[in-house]
Amino acid sequence: MSVLVYTESDKGILKKAALEAASYGKAIADAMGTSLIAITFKVSDASKLGNYGVDKVLNIESIDEFNAFIYADAIKQAVEKENSTLIVLSSSADSKYIAPLLAIGLNAGYVPNVVETPSNLNPFTVKRTAFTNKAYCNTEILTAVKIVGVSNNSFGLIENTGAAQIEAFSPILAESSTSVTSVDKANDKVTIADAEVVVSAGRGLKGPENWKMIEELADVLGAATACSKPVSDLGWRPHSEHVGQTGKPVATNLYIAIGISGAIQHLAGINASKVKVVINTDAEAPFFKAADYGIVGDAFEVVPKLIEKLKAFKAENA
């Protein structure tokens, strides 16, 4: 028996979501009285995993590019080698791509979007979001081998003092008829999926030329930028920034909504965020009912002031 966590990386460096998945895996491994093993692909900072409770890292050197089938196959072989009964992944795009394939490969029950450690180990019961964050569902996994996808930013990072033993792992892999021909990725920008803070703006901003201050605010906060659906439909911002029920989900620590009314479809996608701040001229905007903090005011006055004050705050607290 063991718990296995898939810890993903970007250019050889572990992602924060991976460390969170490891922290989560450690909590369950402790409850189960077993060890935590991580599987990584060509990671250069694997030893860091020890600080999050990982006992052993299986590092695969032989795979270059991401391929969901090959990754799922490699993870499956690690599960079999380590006799793992529980596999933990994050909720990144890649993890959500791999997990269903792995579930079929292992005959395992899979629950995505999990927000807490199991309320019960037998029957194994976890709480997940459903209905695009409008509700939670307590779900039992009925199979012997189980897969859990942890919702980003739901558990947090928990440090441990430990050392992980690093082992090279070389699974036997089949060819895949799917291959990546090109990748187009902005390297300098924080992504919505990885961000701890998201600054989002809506139609209240009047036009794409006014996004400079949104980007500047995001910059000061080390945040990702996002937008409401009409804003991306109008072509003011790229589709990849559209958040909400039909766009990207947001589960950050802080979500700042500027000139967004707070329609039910928008809120459904961002509700999983912990703290919500809204800036809107209309005190009756529905967003105020869903927010923790609010300013009734004009974005064009409030945002520049906020940027200035935050810069001063950051300088003081640096």
Partner: peptide, 16 residues
């Protein structure tokens, strides 16, 4: 030929 949205960008894939 398919394009997949990934965290922070996109990826073009060739498949059968």
């Amino acid at each position: 030929t398919a394009v997949r949205e990934i965290d922070g960008g996109k990826e073009t894939l060739s498949t059968l």
